[in-house]
Amino acid sequence: MILKKLVILAAVFFVAFVIGYGIDAALRTDLDPVQPIKFSHKIHAGTNEIPCQFCHIYAERSRVSGVPNVQRCMGCHKIIKTESPEIKKLTAYWDKREPIPWTKVHNLPDYVYFPHKRHIRAGRKCADCHGDIASMDRVRRVSSLQMGWCLQCHKKYDVKNGQACWTCHI
């Protein structure tokens, strides 16, 4: 009888472990997805020290920071390093008049209201959430982007109404 109970208990634990492992793996797989063009933040933001908001122009004045359009890339790359194979890929998109199908790294669910503007204007740095992007060749998500992680900061800086549900979930 005890043996039977133990077996059932073991089975339950095994199933729980498999489900938990699956959920964990699903959350962690796409930390650094492969992008259509090998764009290196290390070269742009690290070596050449281009400020973040030179390309992500909407961060200070909008809810989204904005993926730069192809024209912004071509603004420099019409002249700079045109012979590189990766830049040739970029030129192909430019000639086809198509946007580059980047894979989103920092993806928030639809029910989260996250304005970049408010955070930038409150004096937070991009690196506070996105990590040291300037040292990454391929962008890797360093923060969990879970609610508990958001609230750490909201508690630390004592944000006004920062812990009310509807501040972020509308």
Binding site: Y111, N161, A164, H169
Partner: peptide, 12 residues
């Protein structure tokens, strides 16, 4: 909430 509104949190 602080706006004096009765609110519904969808994900809860």
């Amino acid at each position: 909430n602080q706006d004096g509104l009765n609110v519904q949190v969808y994900n809860r």
